[in-house]
Design a protein around this nucleic acid. Sequence first.
DNA 1: TTGAAAGCGCTAACAA
DNA 2: TTGTTAGCGCTTTCAA
Lengths: 344, 344
Amino acid sequence: MKKVTIKDIARICNVGVSTVSRAMNDDPGINAQTKERILATMKEYNYTPNGSARNLKRNEANTIALLVKGIDNPFFNSFIKYYEEAIKKYRYSSVLYAVREEEDELEAARQLVKDQKLKGILFLGGVAQPTDEALEALEVPYVLCTAAINMNVSSDHALAVSIDDEGEARRMVDYLIKMGHKRIALIPTRASDISVGFLRVNGYKKALEDNGLEFDPQLVRYLKENQEAYTPKSGYEAAADLLDNGPDCTAIFAISDTMALGVYKAIQERGLRIPEDISVVGFDGLSMCEYLHPGLTTIIQPAEQMLKSSLDLLIRAIEGEGQQKSIVLAAEFKENESVKNLNI
Amino acid sequence: MKKVTIKDIARICNVGVSTVSRAMNDDPGINAQTKERILATMKEYNYTPNGSARNLKRNEANTIALLVKGIDNPFFNSFIKYYEEAIKKYRYSSVLYAVREEEDELEAARQLVKDQKLKGILFLGGVAQPTDEALEALEVPYVLCTAAINMNVSSDHALAVSIDDEGEARRMVDYLIKMGHKRIALIPTRASDISVGFLRVNGYKKALEDNGLEFDPQLVRYLKENQEAYTPKSGYEAAADLLDNGPDCTAIFAISDTMALGVYKAIQERGLRIPEDISVVGFDGLSMCEYLHPGLTTIIQPAEQMLKSSLDLLIRAIEGEGQQKSIVLAAEFKENESVKNLNI
DNA sequence: TTGAAAGCGCTAACAA
DNA sequence: TTGTTAGCGCTTTCAA
């Protein structure tokens, strides 16, 4: 079974190759009937255009990449799923690229753009310290999804889709305070994190301030530089340290659901009960955490919507219709059983 | 900045394009010094060959695909991570492709092979009912990783890497029995599952038989056809049904860790304690489940090793050095706190 | 050991 | 509205 080419189709249909090319590329200047006939023949002979030849000619691959930093973070799973679904609607092909924790995702992106002639990049997670220069060097539009877009970035290419991390964190802590909690511990990422982690910490501080509570550094358990962010392990270790050596608290705000999972264990392992002895809240909306016991109170990021918006934004930008620079989506506050109302 | 091509390099080096081609393709018939010189120039000018042109000419893309069915199953995360790392060692590029639950992964694979001229495919999960014809139609080597290779498959192309699902399940149930459990419930996938799920059920049955215990269908809670396999939700629902309507049991064997998570909740929600009131064991070794409380006793699949072996097997097959057909790796039995010893 | 030249399958400019 | 044709950047004969 030899591969059927554009020439074969042309010969069979008794037309020139360019006519066939026009037929499959929706070129306006072509007779509707001829087009019909050609398309039918293509289908009959099971013809698919050779991508390499196309790209070679067009000197471009209509490809965008999803660049995930921390692919083993289950939070990204649903995004990836939606990505694969959503991309099919567009006439772009795509590659998924996983960047390791210690890798520089911007360098990796630059390499990819060059090697694969990418049209755009969708960053998921990561992008800790994106400087204008580094991002500009990409030379293609990109969208930072779930990542906080930094104040020091003003690049024209820079697009972002996220929730209001600071505001949502603030809302969460405010909720805890309204529930009567005054000693609220925080388990963030590393102190050096200036991305989403930073914003959520800010939200925590603001909520305290809003309510006239003092910020107590002792209640904040930053990860050590050698601990991996957003893992149950780190959450566990931080909570264990807090419970064993820290000041008393009535609630723990883990900055991600993955970490909240570890917090649960640290608490339960010590014979304490959630929420009777200590309340726990998370952030992100990992579906799995609904199945913790008790169900975790958290902020649910609208993964599907975020992904769709990101893709939309990216493709508009690629096609030069970009007007919007960033989209902030509403998150869902999910009240669950992990918080005790101290007012009662 | 115009893209530098092979012609540019040729001109700069004062050689023909074919010589440049030889230099970069490690062609034997070339003077070592010329080669050196050319390679140096390529580096200096930051030349990278145009993949499209290469593929067009060679009429092939040196690409393999990782085809994941159920990308939102966190169990596959670590595999994907290792895949991305491992593939870099080979001179193959790769694509990751996520197949939805309801999609036919073999059809998707066939399409991919055709469209992208794939050299091989690595299936992760899925491949429920692979018939010889369907697999043969792929026309390229493929490896089924973590999927049970079925008895009715004898294709020459068929390669598989897995653990001994039946044996390991048997070991797990045998362990429970040794711990004094006699009424052991099972939460498998759907009754129609003839893949790994089936094998694990078999292992369960054999262990009972080995120990002279009778198989009680009432203790087995198959998922309904509309429930998604390997999710906490399904595990929760099955366990809830079992606890509310089923016969008494002292232990529950969830066929995957993801489902065990839901089982935990169903139990704890009812005010029962693990393992005091009821023991739970899982299967797969989801890292996250170590952070459940109490820690889950499970069978850990050696993800990294499995992935490496799969890739190795696949690439050998592609390059025609295939001798091995399948590899069965040892799993690790992880004893943890979720099982009560009834003998004491 | 090298270079010239013929395409790989496709698109697009040009001519008809 | 259609066909002819010149490449895109590369690999690979073939001849030197």
